[in-house]
Design a protein around this nucleic acid. Sequence first.
DNA 1: CCGGTGATCCACT
DNA 2: GTGGATCACCGGA
Length: 197
Amino acid sequence: MLPDLSRHSLEVAPLLVGCRLQLGAVTVRLVEVEAYEGGDDPASHAYRGQTRRNTVMFGPSGHLYVYQLHGSFCCNVVCGPAGIATAVLLRAGEVEAGREEATARREARRATPVVPRDLARGPGNLCRALGITTEHNGADLLAGPVVRLLPAVRTPRTLGIGPRVNVATAADRPWRFWDAGSASVSVFKRHPRAMAG
DNA sequence: CCGGTGATCCACT
DNA sequence: GTGGATCACCGGA
């Protein structure tokens, strides 16, 4: 069973750990996610209202919000009812199927090999492994023909909970959730100018 | 640790 | 329309 994505991201995020994301031949088991609010969350793209970039966040749940950052892509599962901009950032996963394709994509922009553990480790790497680009911004994850969210086969035995990675504001809110038994969880990094809130 | 990265947004012309 | 600051990152040393 997939979680009810029309709930708030803080409720949905822990339930997404263990679910799977599939695009073409590549399937990734999600092992690390972060919740972002609309209204009261200064770290959220939606904090200052709707813009062209974050339009999808304001739409109905179950769609993919993709944006580009420092030359990488990052993707979110949009949650909440339409009009409430809350979403879950997908930070890391384990490649379950399509390892060859994922490896080829990753190594296309590297000089050194990638070990399987690192194929979808980190938000940019997860998108890269799956082939997610801004072309998939707004894609329907439940009914769409291209990229799909699939239920968990195995849920984490222990769920880790802690602050989000590398956010400048609201740095201490424990809105990151991960599978404590996975080696593919990305490394925690506090933002150099992190502010509480 | 450090440098490259490139879109986006806002405050200004 | 333009300039500059900002940023939920990555790779290699």
